[in-house]
């Protein structure tokens, strides 16, 4: 249908009477890396959760890899199989081993044989540098390791797009670096990435574009050097002055 990975036009969403997303328009090209930032409550997490259907939008259109998210049966599952999501709180399944966490969806959604799923899972656990933890339970790992497992779990589905919802916000300072490094390595493979984060260093080095959101709307979209050096909107300026000190 198109060359873009994600196409969002005229998207609106409400929580009860509260207007969380206001007329969002955003197109992400294949292989593009977009960082979304903004103050808390600006709707950036909601936007990213709309992209794989965890939140439903009420107005507008949202197309992911040519498939439009809709009320049609099976559509959401089809989109989700193409989109990996990494949460702030990792959300690993505590009753399954690291390996089982990774193989669950490939086996039951993509119907891969167990052995194949395991080979795939090990490949991605190696990519995030923790193959030796494969047989442990999530509770036995540190926060940084858990988040890397979560990344490997999403990758084992071989998605075309990876979404990150504040992946380092729940981590102790000394563990942020290992997760960010993994994400940089992932970016180098050409993966399409949408990242909600406050790590401006990451945005500067990895992003093609930075999206600034405030009060449910997109205020400014710009390449990182332009975004950080000469922001257009006064709201962006104020945000940057608070976050970069």
């Amino acid at each position: 249908m198109s060359t873009s990975a994600v196409e969002i036009t005229g998207l609106n969403k409400w929580f009860k009477a509260f207007h969380v997303l206001k007329d969002i328009n955003l197109t992400v090209a294949r292989g593009e890396r977009v960082v979304i930032c903004g103050p808390s409550g600006s709707g950036k997490s909601t936007l990213i959760r709309c992209i794989n259907g965890l939140e439903r939008h009420q107005e507008g259109r949202l197309t992911v890899e040519g498939v439009e998210l809709s009320e049609e049966i099976g559509q959401i599952e089809a989109v989700r199989a193409n989109v990996g999501l990494v949460f702030q709180q990792f959300n690993l399944f505590p009753h399954l081993t690291v390996l089982e966490n990774c193989t669950l969806a490939p086996m039951w959604v993509k119907r891969l044989p167990k052995r194949e799923a395991e080979t795939l899972a090990m490949k991605y656990l190696e990519r995030v540098h923790i193959p030796e933890q494969a047989l442990k339970y999530p509770g036995q790992l540190s926060g940084g390791q858990q988040q890397r497992v979560a990344i490997a779990r999403a990758l084992t589905m071989e998605p075309r797009i990876m979404l990150f919802d504040e992946p380092t916000s729940a981590l102790d300072p000394e563990m942020i670096k290992e997760v960010l490094e993994t994400m940089v390595e992932l970016a180098e493979t050409g993966m399409t990435m949408l990242v909600v984060t406050h790590e401006m260093g990451f945005a500067r080095t990895v992003a093609n574009r930075v999206v600034f959101m405030d009060e449910g709307e997109i205020v400014e979209i710009a390449p990182p050097e332009e975004f950080f050096t000469k922001p257009k909107s006064p709201r962006t300026k104020e945000f940057l002055s608070q976050i970069l000190r």
Binding site: G53, L54, E77, R80, L85, Q89, L104, A105, R153, M157
Partner: peptide, 15 residues
């Protein structure tokens, strides 16, 4: 069971 478990399972495409 925390809400995140439901969301993580859904986000992977599990029915």
């Amino acid at each position: 069971i925390p809400k995140g478990q439901y969301e993580a399972a859904a986000a992977m495409g599990l029915s």
